[in-house]
Amino acid sequence: PDPVTRIVTEARLDYTHTPGRAQSAHLAALGEQRIVGERCPSCRKVYVPPRGACPTCGVATTDRVGVGPAGTVTTFCIVNIKARNLDIDVPYVYAHIALDGADLPLHGRIGGIPYDQVRMGLRVEPVWTADGRHPDHYRPTGEPDAAYDSYKELI
């Protein structure tokens, strides 16, 4: 008989994640419709979501800092493939958003604007879920676009 060269089978991974001090504070603030990060005492950069340590310096971060809620789209992509179990019509825009006061962009979906009008520098604000636990998406604030020099280091 021919040798077995592949086996196809379903796989499942179950895991439990326990957030640490920094993530717990971030999640608690999101429940109050606030966004917080932590500042590195060495390089002074503010990271959102906080990690508990600076990824650049390796120093513990303990100084909690409120950021945003508004921010600037630094880069984005237009998604044209429908994701399984995601009730969002395609196309939609997923972006890196530099929240005001943060030194690292976070990921978020852009809504409230046609996908072909999203651009780098667009000023956006969060739209919270009904339960207020996290932003559902970000929408334009109506402010003028941010100057490229204000976010070019975050691309």
Rank of each mutant, 00 (worst) to 15 (best):
C43I: 06
G71T: 01
Y15C: 08
G108L: 06
H26G: 01
L27P: 07
D63S: 12
G52P: 07
G121T: 03
D63N: 08
P3Y: 04
P144H: 00
G68I: 01
Y115D: 04
D100H: 05
D100I: 03
N80K: 12
D103A: 07
G108S: 09
P19S: 12
V4E: 10
D136Y: 07
E38W: 07
G31R: 15
Y148K: 12
P126A: 12
R51K: 13
Y138S: 01
A29H: 11
A130G: 11
R119W: 01
E10V: 07
D2I: 09
R39P: 00
P49D: 08
R39V: 09
Q33R: 15
V46I: 11
G132T: 08
D89H: 05
A11N: 09
T16V: 15
V59H: 04
G142T: 04
D14Q: 14
I7H: 12
A29N: 11
E153I: 03
R123C: 01
D100T: 02
V48S: 05
M120L: 10
A83T: 14
A95H: 02
R109F: 09
L86F: 09
P19W: 08
I113T: 03
D149P: 06
D63P: 00
C57Q: 05
E143Q: 06
D2T: 10
S24E: 13
A130H: 12
L99R: 02
R119F: 00
D103F: 03
K82I: 00
V8W: 08
A147C: 02
T18W: 14
G58N: 13
T18S: 14
V124M: 01
